[in-house]
Amino acid sequence: MYRIRFHGRGGQGIKTAAQALGTAFFLEGFEVQDAPRYGAERRGAPIFAYVRAARAPIQERGVIARPDAVLVADETLVPVPAAGVLQGLAERTVLVVASSETGETWRERLALPGPVLALAPDEAGGPLAGMACAGAAARLVGVIGRERLEAAVREEIGKLGAAVLERNLAAALAAYDALAPHAGLVAEGAPVAAAGYRPPEWIELPRDTAHFAAPDIDAPATSVAAKTGAWRTLRPVIDYARCNRCSWVCGTLCPDSAIAVDADRTPRIDYDHCKGCMVCLAVCPPHAIAAEPERARAEAAE
């Protein structure tokens, strides 16, 4: 059975990527399961989806804990613990990262035992990265023909119109073609029988009463501990020379309460929590706010 996990951010088409790969497997005659993780389908938030495919009926259920391949559409997710990108990676797991850095760089950086491949990010950027990962996975398993992949993408995307379909087809097929030298690198994992099932190596915690296990939270606004700044791909930067100290526009309209205004009317952006929605940039009357790509900033800092 093939067990494949896709990671990305809401808006990159991760759910659709899993559906496209699942359909391609199906067209090749496989039994298929594909599912997105429910509950966090928010733009910019970490999301994952997974596909199981086998020649026999699939009895396994739930999230894939021991993947044969993991495809990551957004490299900034790799170090985010909540995203769980590296969860269950074994020596035989193939990791693919959409990144301008090489697979070798990623392998060394993460000290991984297994193969790591890089997928040069599509020129069109974010929204097609998921589909590129689907194309890559289809090639890596080595059992999906190019025309089956194409048919699957048509089936999943066709309803969105010709222009969108063309872009998605191009992304999927470009990745499929680029990974030709690695066809078949991803091998099927052994079936897991309920009897021989090895549970994940979790830590047993003693059962406590609710009073201890889930104590009342009496502190106000504890949500600030969640750093949603990691969602951001663009960073709003205020040019204070241009800001006319209007005192309310960006501070009030920021949906996330992430801009506070000082006593002297200077707005301050809380980058630990700003999600990069860019509402502030759109509403600032003197256009004093610019968008800087986080990726470029990170590269400049290195």
Binding site: A226, K227, T228, P255, S257, A258, D272, C277
Partner: peptide, 12 residues
Amino acid sequence: HLLGTGTAMCAG
């Protein structure tokens, strides 16, 4: 602001 940051609502 009184409402805490760090919530899971979508950007925007």
